[in-house]
Amino acid sequence: MSIDLARPIVPTIALKMLSGNTRLLGIPKQRVQVVMILPHITEFNEELKNAIDFFKERAESFIITSSTQKQCDEVIANYKIKENLISREYQDFSKVFAIKDQNGLLEKGLMIIDTNCQITHKDIL
């Protein structure tokens, strides 16, 4: 493993997924971690599902949302995705990674964490 000191290192954070399982960000992994931040889970679409499926061998995907449980359940049913892909623990996540707007609401974004636990890409969309 080679650490690039110019890139931020991800703090370890535990996320409770809708499945009830806990998944960890910020620990070394064999695959990169792709975190999609969707304040409104209803913005999930077929292109995102296809991208998750295409990269599943190379990337571990997460969706962070502030949507209701009902909205999440509808997306899970409509797109046949797994509950362990989605977390509603957006408050801690948005504090740790500074992904909030001036009103304190979760912002839409994308973050890629490499196998060394470094943020290689972070966009607020």
Rank of each mutant, 00 (worst) to 15 (best):
residue 2 S to T: 15
residue 11 P to L: 08
residue 12 T to I: 14
residue 14 A to P: 09
residue 17 M to F: 09
residue 17 M to A: 08
residue 17 M to Q: 10
residue 18 L to Y: 05
residue 19 S to I: 10
residue 19 S to Y: 07
residue 20 G to H: 09
residue 21 N to H: 08
residue 22 T to S: 11
residue 24 L to T: 09
residue 27 I to F: 06
residue 30 Q to G: 11
residue 31 R to G: 00
residue 32 V to I: 12
residue 34 V to H: 04
residue 39 P to F: 09
residue 39 P to A: 08
residue 41 I to N: 01
residue 44 F to G: 02
residue 45 N to G: 06
residue 49 K to F: 04
residue 49 K to T: 10
residue 49 K to G: 06
residue 50 N to F: 08
residue 51 A to L: 12
residue 52 I to E: 06
residue 52 I to Q: 08
residue 53 D to R: 06
residue 54 F to R: 13
residue 56 K to C: 13
residue 58 R to V: 08
residue 59 A to P: 02
residue 60 E to W: 04
residue 61 S to P: 06
residue 61 S to F: 15
residue 61 S to M: 12
residue 62 F to A: 00
residue 67 S to Y: 02
residue 68 T to S: 15
residue 68 T to Y: 03
residue 69 Q to L: 12
residue 72 C to P: 03
residue 72 C to T: 05
residue 72 C to D: 02
residue 72 C to K: 05
residue 73 D to H: 09
residue 73 D to W: 00
residue 73 D to S: 11
residue 76 I to F: 03
residue 78 N to D: 15
residue 78 N to K: 14
residue 78 N to S: 14
residue 79 Y to H: 06
residue 79 Y to I: 01
residue 82 K to L: 13
residue 82 K to Y: 10
residue 82 K to T: 14
residue 86 I to S: 04
residue 88 R to H: 02
residue 92 D to H: 12
residue 93 F to V: 02
residue 94 S to R: 08
residue 98 A to H: 13
residue 98 A to W: 06
residue 99 I to Q: 11
residue 102 Q to S: 15
residue 106 L to K: 03
residue 106 L to T: 04
residue 109 G to I: 07
residue 110 L to H: 07
residue 110 L to V: 11
residue 111 M to Y: 01
residue 112 I to M: 10
residue 113 I to W: 00
residue 114 D to I: 00
residue 115 T to L: 01
residue 118 Q to Y: 01
residue 123 D to H: 09
residue 125 L to N: 11
